[in-house]
């Protein structure tokens, strides 16, 4: 890591407090966006446990689904879903900014790239739903 900054005498060096993200709405939204990763990871761990119970037989699987019916778990999943959707929306919006797409010599406007990402998300979601819920 880099050496700590040498402070010159006479100058005032401001310190950014750990609560900086409460200072403006954009900073706060940034923190929510980053925090979404925690809820997504927690859900995936719960889902992994569900798959593990699946391999242990119908009884274990049914018992686990019964556990997930508890109000606490439902609230957790509702909150996690809200964060997951927030992650998707912010991610696809920023994809347009990060990923430069060119058609010939022209750069495709970032909004169009973001729009295409949202369209892809919709298609993938519908296909997945159909696959999971048919039959």
């Amino acid at each position: 890591m880099t050496a700590p900054r040498v402070e010159r005498p006479g100058l005032f060096y401001p310190k950014l407090p750990a609560t900086w993200w409460l200072r403006n709405a954009n900073y706060f939204r940034f923190m929510l966006r980053e925090l979404s990763s925690v809820f997504i990871a927690l859900f995936l761990v719960v889902f992994l446990v569900q798959l593990h119970r699946l391999s242990q037989g119908p009884g274990a699987y049914a018992a686990y689904l019964e556990t997930l019916r508890a109000p606490g778990w439902i609230i957790f999943h509702v909150v996690a879903l809200a964060f997951a959707l927030y992650h998707s929306v912010t991610w696809f919006n920023l994809t347009g900014v990060v990923q430069v797409v060119r058609l010939g010599e022209r750069q495709v406007p970032p909004r169009l790239v973001a729009g295409a990402s949202f369209a892809l998300w919709a298609v993938v979601s519908v296909v997945l739903l159909w696959f999971l819920l048919r039959g």
Binding site: I40, L44, F47, I74, V78, A84, W91
Partner: peptide
């Protein structure tokens, strides 16, 4: 996460436990 997680969360975290739909063990 952005593409796939919301649907799985909805199905495995809410729809199946709440009985909106069911996916049999088999």
């Amino acid at each position: 996460a952005a593409l796939l997680v919301p649907v799985h969360l909805l199905v495995h975290g809410l729809a199946v436990p709440l009985g909106w739909t069911s996916i049999s063990h088999a």
